[in-house]
Amino acid sequence: MSSDSENPATEAKPEEKPTPPKPAAKAEEKPEELPAFEKGISDKLVEKFGDKVQVDFVKEDRVGIKTSKENVHDVAQFIRDDLHYDHAESVTGVDFPADNEIEVVYHLGSYTESSLARQVLTLATRAPRESNPIPGQDSTKLPSLRDVFYSVEFGEREVFEMLGVYFDGHPDNRRLLLPEDWADLPPLRKDFAIKGR
């Protein structure tokens, strides 16, 4: 009938059969050194931004970068345009009441650049935290990365409702998962306690 399913096993054979590069293999030979490929990524960022970025960690397939909220947009743009990361896998908010800050972590990956297929770049930034939050109207604000990575759209909406971080420049800062009439604290803050715990 249709020619589509005549040969399902072979029709999708990808052309790039050579195994993806495994830059981390070097790390196993010299365990005391940082993995070279990942080190190269963090070096490029440090070279471009100097002390505006801090390298959080460099380990096999993972690079962690921290930056301030003033620079996060520029850093993200550089990561997209020059390092060729093309999508965000997740946007995570982590509450740190002891530091009076909320950290927002973007996990970035790449589909187009095959050498980055194993890599996840962690871009973290922090927003000030208020003990009596009024989500959207207090100082807990960050610039939105939605114009850099389109794929953060729902992730940022989730962080907004779950932690009360307002993203400036996000086109659609509405609730996503919580009920529309939710009037309590943002639930993933540490001071929101589960009953009985």
């Binding site: 093309d86 999508h87 896998e89 589909y111 187009t112 389109y150 794929s151």
Partner: peptide
């Protein structure tokens, strides 16, 4: 790629991942 899709949705659009 732009929407950051994954799995079968991504592979049905021609991305080998």
């Amino acid at each position: 790629i732009r929407y950051g899709t994954t799995g079968s949705v991504l592979r049905a659009s021609g991305v080998d991942y």
